[in-house]
Design a binder for these strands. Structure first.
Length: 456
RNA sequence: GUGGUUGUAGCUCAGCUGGUUAGAGCAUCAGAUUGUGGUUCUGAGGGUCGUGGGUUCGAACCCCAUCAUCCACCCCA
């Protein structure tokens, strides 16, 4: 054989049986989003590079897929070698990129259509995103995000509602999860408290790994980042803090209640938990002081959802961003959003065997094709079954019966109807149940009613 | 970007210290069965052993390079 065709690293094809299951996830999430009044939008796969660059930090910029300009992109470029530098060459080579997430394109969308949007604007968006990362378990270069965001409202009730949505989605899917909640203002308060406000990023990145690498390694990493010993010392009570969410908040008030931003964060957290405690949720939710989340545009609450029974990174995350639209020239609009990672949720459902059984069958009835006369006899029956809401098809050619039966078998079609010459003359066709192998004769005039009853 | 793993039929993998013509299971196709699938039996097709170079009388096997893959780190859904 010639060289085998293949697809790019970190991308996947989805066959019919996989798509049925993926759609089950998308439909579940979409239904919940709509239940809470969120409206759908879509944005292009590619954005201007200027929209994307600088929004995800230095690391994020490296993970952007850039699209090569069409045509002879160097024709207008000054090719004098003395002026040849990557920085001024780049705009000539690439000016578009594949979107990295759905939040930044959404911010662009809000700014662009600000006069047409009714605020607070609740939107959802289910589309693929791309990251030029190295693939590994649960990590792909092309994957779907399912986002719900509210912009134009500072109210913490929005945060609470998003947790409620998480609750509903995972309850429907049957996955046990824990929602971890933190607040960037609390993290800033911690950084102030230990006297290194400028190191907030290094501090949060390090303590985010606490449960993964342990306290020793965290302290070591902090030291390597240039955090002073006394600052690390002051941080220890936070890292070792025990108790439930309310107890932790009380302890934190002792430590960081004195600085403005820390107090603000704690106050927000308290309000949020008051809402959540009144929502009779099924999911666990807890304050996790070590939760940091990478995206640096978050300014308030941050969320992360982890499956309790599967070894998988976070399957859902989000947070509050006070000024995302500011970088696109529209300051003072606050937003909060959440993003479900459909591909990871798929992997979790597969691992835990949580996909519903029925989600693999598409056709209910197959007519065996005996020839051109018989085809014509079957067509009105087919149409009638379809009108009655029953998925039905006829084998497209009068192939060997064995092959047609095998087709039904492989496609898990539960009923096969045989209408050959003698059946047509008698006015009775055979309906074969492929599960039991049982075959009964049914009058043509009563066929649709019979099938409706049998299927129901 | 860093470290490691594995590349043999469509798929999952055997293949001894380097030795004739590289095997198995599953899948596919055909027949047993001209109007009955999923079971069974018989037979058939399908491989530049990832690619390129080297060592050797001889390489799927040893060496080097390269590409791909998966896993871990960084980071993240």
């Amino acid at each position: 054989m010639a060289q085998k065709p293949s697809i790019p690293k970190g991308t996947r094809d989805f066959g019919p049986q996989v798509m049925v299951r993926r759609n089950y996830i998308f439909d579940t999430i979409r239904t919940v989003f709509q239940r809470y009044g969120y409206q759908p939008i879509e944005t292009p796969a590619m954005e201007q590079l200027s929209t994307l660059l600088g929004k995800y930090g230095e690391e994020g910029d490296k993970l952007l897929f850039r699209i090569l300009n069409s045509g002879d992109f160097l024709s207008a470029y000054d090719k004098n070698p003395e002026h040849l530098e990557a920085s001024n060459l780049l705009p000539h080579i690439s000016e578009k990129g594949l979107r990295y997430d759905l939040t930044v394109p959404f911010a662009r969308f809000v700014v662009q259509y600000r006069n047409d949007i009714v605020f607070p604007f609740k939107r959802y968006q289910i589309q693929p995103v791309w990251r030029a990362d190295r693939p590994q378990k649960g990590r792909y270069r092309e994957f779907y995000q399912c986002d719900a965001d509210v912009v134009g409202s500072d109210a913490l009730l929005n945060e609470a509602e998003l947790v409620q949505i998480v609750n509903d989605v995972f309850k429907k899917l049957g996955v046990r999860v824990v929602v971890k909640i933190n607040n960037r203002k609390i993290l800033a308060g911690i950084a102030n408290y230990i006297g290194s406000p400028e190191s907030i990023t290094d501090i949060t990145v390090a303590i985010d790994k606490l449960d993964k690498i342990g306290i020793e390694s965290v302290n070591q990493e902090l030291a390597e980042k240039g955090i002073s010993n006394e600052a690390i010392e002051k941080l220890q009570p936070v890292l070792f803090m025990k108790g439930n969410s309310h107890e932790k908040m009380a302890q934190m008030a002792q430590l960081i209640g004195g600085n403005d931003i820390g107090a603000k964060g704690l106050s927000e957290m308290k309000t949020l938990f008051e809402y959540l405690d009144h929502m009779s949720l099924d999911v666990e939710y807890e304050l996790d002081l070590t939760l940091a989340r990478g995206l640096n545009y978050y300014t308030g609450a941050i969320f992360e959802v982890k499956a309790l029974d599967a070894q998988m990174g976070s399957i859902c995350g989000g947070g509050r961003y006070d000024d995302l639209t500011g970088i696109f020239g529209m300051p003072g609009v606050s937003g909060v959003g959440i993003s479900f990672g459909a591909d990871r949720i798929y992997d979790v459902l597969l691992e835990l065997n949580l996909f519903p059984e029925t989600s693999s069958q598409s056709t209910t009835v197959l007519f065996v094709n005996f020839g051109s006369q018989e085809e014509k006899f079957c067509l009105p029956l087919l149409a009638a079954l379809r009108s009655a809401g029953i998925n039905a098809e006829i084998f497209p050619e009068a192939d060997k019966m064995k092959k047609q039966m095998k087709y039904a078998d492989l496609k898990k079609i539960p009923f096969v109807i045989l209408a050959g010459e003698s059946e047509i003359q008698s006015g009775f066709v055979f309906v074969k149940n492929m599960l039991t192998g049982e075959q009964i004769s049914v009058g043509v005039t009563g066929l649709v009613d019979f099938m409706i009853q049998t299927v129901a």
